[in-house]
C-alpha cells in the first residue's frame, strides 16, 4: 500500500511520503550499515547521511516501489565511502575502535572468529560490502548487483576474490605457531 502511494509533488506531501518511506525501511538500512561497518555509531551516521542525500534527490525517484532498493543503494554507497575513508586513516584506528556490541558466538572457537574478523578487515571496501550483503542478508547476486550498482559478473568476481582472500588470511592465521 505504502509502496504504491503516489508521490505528490508538493513539498509537504513529499516530506510526508519521504518520512513514511524512510520510517518503513530504516530498520533494514541501519542494520545493513551496522553489519558492513561493524560499528553502530558509524552506521547511524551513514544512514542519516544517506537519508539527507535521499531527501535531496527524492524528486528524481519516479517509482515509490523502488524506494527500498534506491535508498539501500545510497546507504551502501555511504558505507563504502566510510570504509574507504577508514583506509586513509592512520594504522591502528580499527584496533582503537572495535565493533560495537559483538555477540560472542559459542559455536565457534574464539580464535577462529577473531581470525575471520581480522581477515574481513583486510578486504577491500567493495569486497566487504558484497560479502556482507551476500552472507548476512542472504541477497542473491542480482539483488547485490542492484543494491551496489554494478554488473552481476562483477559481483561474482568480487565475491570470488573476497572469499579467496579470506581463506588465505585465515590459513595464515591457523599456520601461525
Amino acid at each position: 500500500m505504502l509502496a504504491t502511494r503516489t508521490i505528490d509533488r508538493s513539498v509537504t506531501s513529499r516530506a510526508e511520503a519521504f518520512s513514511a518511506l524512510t520510517d518503513c525501511h530504516l530498520d533494514g538500512a541501519y542494520r545493513m550499515a551496522a553489519v558492513i561497518l561493524a560499528s553502530q555509531l558509524e552506521a547511524e551516521d551513514a544512514v542519516h547521511d544517506a537519508a539527507v542525500i535521499a531527501w535531496q534527490s527524492f524528486g528524481q525517484l519516479r517509482d515509490p516501489a523502488r524506494f527500498e532498493a534506491w535508498f539501500g543503494r545510497i546507504v551502501v554507497n555511504q558505507c563504502r565511502d566510510r570504509l574507504r575513508a577508514r583506509r586513509r586513516r592512520p594504522v591502528g584506528w580499527l584496533a582503537a575502535d572495535p565493533p560495537d556490541r559483538l555477540i560472542p558466538d559459542a559455536s565457534e572457537p574464539l580464535a577462529a572468529r577473531n581470525a575471520l574478523g581480522r581477515a574481513l578487515a583486510v578486504l577491500e571496501p567493495d569486497e566487504l560490502t558484497v560479502v556482507a550483503l551476500r552472507f548476512w542478508r542472504d541477497f542473491t547476486l542480482d539483488q547485490i548487483a542492484e543494491r551496489v550498482g554494478i554488473p552481476v559478473g562483477t559481483v561474482k568476481s568480487r565475491l570470488h576474490h573476497a572469499l579467496g582472500r579470506l581463506r588465505t588470511a585465515i590459513q595464515v592465521e591457523e599456520d601461525r605457531p
Binding site: R31, A38, E44, D105, E108, R113, F135, W136
Partner: peptide, 13 residues
C-alpha cells in the same frame, strides 16, 4: 561468515 556478520547485527535502530 553468517555467524560473524550476524553478530554485528545490532537489531532495530
Amino acid at each position: 561468515l553468517f555467524d560473524l556478520l550476524g553478530g554485528r547485527d545490532p537489531g532495530p535502530p
